[in-house]
Design a protein around this nucleic acid. Sequence first.
DNA 1: CGGAATTTTGACAGGCTTCAAACGCGGTGG
DNA 2: CCACCGCGTTTGAAGCCTGTCAAAATTCCG
Lengths: 241, 241
Amino acid sequence: MDETHDALTRKLQAFKGLGPEDLAMLRELQKPRSLIEAGKEVVYEGQYPHAAYILREGWACAYKRLRDGSRQIIDIQIPGDFLGLRSLLLRASDHSFLTITDVEVARLDRQRMLEVFRRTPRLAVGLMWAASRDEAMVVEHLVSIGRRDAFERTAHFLLELGERLKLVGIGDGSTYPCPISQSILADALGMTAIHINRVLRQLREAKIVVFRDGVVEFQDIKRAADVTGFEMAYLDQGPAT
Amino acid sequence: MDETHDALTRKLQAFKGLGPEDLAMLRELQKPRSLIEAGKEVVYEGQYPHAAYILREGWACAYKRLRDGSRQIIDIQIPGDFLGLRSLLLRASDHSFLTITDVEVARLDRQRMLEVFRRTPRLAVGLMWAASRDEAMVVEHLVSIGRRDAFERTAHFLLELGERLKLVGIGDGSTYPCPISQSILADALGMTAIHINRVLRQLREAKIVVFRDGVVEFQDIKRAADVTGFEMAYLDQGPAT
DNA sequence: CGGAATTTTGACAGGCTTCAAACGCGGTGG
DNA sequence: CCACCGCGTTTGAAGCCTGTCAAAATTCCG
């Protein structure tokens, strides 16, 4: 019944119901939309103030590049996610963005954000919840890179992505479209593209998950969750763990 | 002249000046204080709502434990930092805390937080700035673990810690007290205690930094920053990079 | 159809972990 | 006062996971 809702609205509803004014403001926030084509690097440096964006359609990622040219992807953004929310408050933005597919975004500047806090505090809490959840994902990502080996880490990542997508109505958690290349996956998981390829083969041969032709398909999602120790509590979105 | 200020106040002043009501509220927030001894594990799980804490004195860390018993430390907290701010909004808290030294904390519940937003919006923005900065540190931490080798990662961590401590009046950025054990350091940096020990020896022999007897002392801080590619912009605290 | 980007595979090297054990130091009890 | 113990630090040796180098196979796209 809420097929008419956009991704962000769906996501926020999963947290707490919104009133009519909240929904109106949310529509308003996503009003001036713009399109960016796939593969565009949005370098995001220099001085404050920056704007943030709501990603309405398409996939993107936030990354940091190191001096030696290597790249670490901080997180992957899917419809309903924010881009650069942190930079609304920090004086120096510290990372850049890359559009993975063609995307549609809505600009969100400081001014409008403050307006949300003044006029629709319930929505404001919802947005802060979403930001907290994003942070929890970065934290889990950190744990993965620090303490899980490549095999576990990859499966964990694909499981998380499936749940996130399900929340905004894409896929069912066990099969979903996934337009990211192996080299992006590698930079997200802190390994090389060559090794990610080997790991994906292992996952395939272990009959856990197949990632091929832009589609992720779990064959044994239970065992996947078990092997990687995936607990979805930190996503704060589903039936309790 | 602000020697009379506590760590959090010092930190927030570095962001933006606070008015008299802000300062009063900030004092008020830190009012009911309590002490926790060193080495105490504050397991932080189960259901919402949780409270957050302001760390007034001492050191602590936030960590997650994996099923196999290994531990990943998310971040180290020093005076003026928050503990568990994220859990004010998420329904399931996802990590625990460990006190590294004896600490003094002040409880911060949802109620009082909302009061800050209502009554002293300028202070609220300051607190959100601090939260954003904490998140930026987690992100940099992620980049370190993902893309820097053990040597760079360790030096980078010690540089960051020095700058953070300097901001709250502890040490001068190049020499500072540091009560953390090598095994905690290892779990923070995603490696083993054994390897951290070897890396610290390398850093010592390279005449970059000595960490011994609870004191970190850089011998060549310029080269340290150069070797690790340390840019302090993300800390958003000092003269521009 | 041709060139570029991505995926895939193999061989080898190296950084880090694992396993083992010695060392130093502060605290405790005999 | 000293033996004993626990904890953190230090060092050594061996092995594995992952990176590096190289190149072929495949797909994408103009």
